[in-house]
Amino acid sequence: MSVELNHTIIFARDNRASAEFLAGILGLKAGAQWGPFVPVETSNGVTLDFASVGPEKVAAQHYAFLVSEEEFTASFERIQQAGLTYYADPGLKKPGEINHNDGGRGVYFLDPDGHGMELITRPYGSGGR
């Protein structure tokens, strides 16, 4: 059997709000609450389980999503429509820009809990600049 990531837990102040935020940007649906989790499933079968915790337990994490050019365009439009600040870099030093690393497009933005979200159209190291 090959090893695959099945799910991960993302701590949030409000699991429903955070799940719906990310699902909305990505054009996905937040699922029904299951126990303490609100799931968002990606197309490759990985589930992001959002769990409500106190604000002191939310430590900023980074989540990167590989998307098609079409999905990037649609998600980036939703980022702009939501009035989110976005960046070309993980250090958040280039606001209002996207990057073109490896010949693709990439963007960083923060979710309501300060988690760094990244959308890329080409995997790192896949070539092009």
Rank of each mutant, 00 (worst) to 15 (best):
D89C: 09
L66F: 02
A82E: 03
A82D: 00
F65N: 07
G114E: 12
Y87G: 07
S52D: 14
G104E: 04
A12K: 12
L119K: 03
I10N: 13
G35Q: 14
F21V: 01
P36N: 05
A88K: 04
E41R: 15
T85W: 06
E118L: 02
Y108C: 05
H100C: 06
E4D: 12
W34V: 14
V40W: 00
D111E: 07
R105H: 09
E4S: 14
S43T: 08
P36W: 00
D89P: 08
E56W: 00
P39A: 07
D49G: 09
E69A: 10
V46F: 04
I10R: 12
N6R: 15
F11T: 12
P112A: 11
P95H: 05
T8L: 15
H7V: 04
G27K: 07
A23I: 08
N99V: 11
M117Y: 02
G91D: 03
Y108M: 06
G116I: 11
N101K: 10
D49L: 14
A32D: 15
A23K: 10
G104K: 11
A19E: 12
K29H: 13
G127K: 00
D89H: 09
A74I: 05
V38K: 13
S52R: 00
G125K: 00
E20S: 15
V107S: 05
V38R: 10
R78L: 12
L66S: 01
D102L: 06
L22I: 15
E77V: 04
A82M: 11
G96L: 08
N15H: 15
T121H: 07
E41C: 03
P112K: 07
Y63R: 06
R78D: 06
P39C: 07
S68C: 05
S43L: 01
V3F: 12
L26D: 11
F76D: 02
G125I: 02
R78P: 07
H7E: 13
F11A: 15
N15E: 15
R13F: 03
G104R: 11
F21I: 02
A32C: 05
V53R: 11
E71M: 05
F50L: 05
H100P: 06
E97M: 13
L28T: 03
E70N: 00
A59L: 04
E77N: 14
P39H: 13
K29V: 13
E97G: 05
E118S: 02
A51Q: 13
G127I: 03
Y87F: 15
H115D: 05
E97N: 07
G27R: 09
H62T: 03
D49M: 11
Y108D: 04
E97Q: 11
D49H: 12
S126Y: 02
G83N: 06
F76H: 06
F21Q: 13
P123R: 01
D49Q: 09
I9L: 12
Y87L: 09
H115N: 13
A64H: 08
T73I: 11
V67N: 01
F72W: 04
G83Q: 08
L22M: 14
H115K: 08
N99A: 09
G45T: 04
I98T: 13
A88I: 01
A12N: 10
Q33H: 03
L22V: 15
T85V: 13
G114V: 00
G31H: 12
A32G: 10
R13H: 14
V40C: 07
L84R: 03
P55Y: 04
Q81K: 08
S2V: 11
Y108N: 11
L28D: 07
A59P: 02
G125C: 00
